[in-house]
Design a protein around this nucleic acid. Sequence first.
DNA 1: GTATTATATTAGAATATAATAATCTGAATG
DNA 2: CATTCAGATTATTATATTCTAATATAATAC
Lengths: 88, 88
Amino acid sequence: MDQDRISQAEYLKALAHPTRIRILELLESEGRCVSNIGEKLDLKQSNISQHLGILRSRGILSLRREGGHSIYCIKDPRVAKILDLLRG
Amino acid sequence: MDQDRISQAEYLKALAHPTRIRILELLESEGRCVSNIGEKLDLKQSNISQHLGILRSRGILSLRREGGHSIYCIKDPRVAKILDLLRG
DNA sequence: GTATTATATTAGAATATAATAATCTGAATG
DNA sequence: CATTCAGATTATTATATTCTAATATAATAC
């Protein structure tokens, strides 16, 4: 079955962007809202929202609402291992 | 410095393709030549050669010549770990 | 040398991604 | 209910990837 490799490639592709790596690094320590991430990375809100959407649609991030804010957290436990490998 | 995240993203991007994942899986056990990989994957020679070139240009594969053949081998030790992670 | 085999490179069309800007939705507040 | 704030969605444009087909190179065989 090659659907496996397609899914695996899509997973890696979701991680394979400098901004998304930076987002994951920020979220490693704690959940954050979109505007907080926006300040840290100094990028347009819509751009960050799109990247977060990509990570969420792949099951890598989870989202909860809290007050007026959307808090994103890392959901996939493999992320920490991959970030470690990359820093290796 | 954000050059780090750019390089990390490029590394992941090199891995993030179903055909390249299949190639890496084949090479996990032993080095192989282009035509051998071609038979296993049933893809056009030029396509495989291009994918191998991408993996080699990122330092993921190494190449040695042997008889009329180019033998590709996994060079980057992180690959095994990432494949394991993907298999989860 | 010529032919053959193995691989690499190039060119081009189709598709996918990414950034920006603009618009929309929904919740909370006055 | 009108306004504001946080975030999501859409449209557009620019760039990058991927595949196929064709061509080029390099080594070996005859």
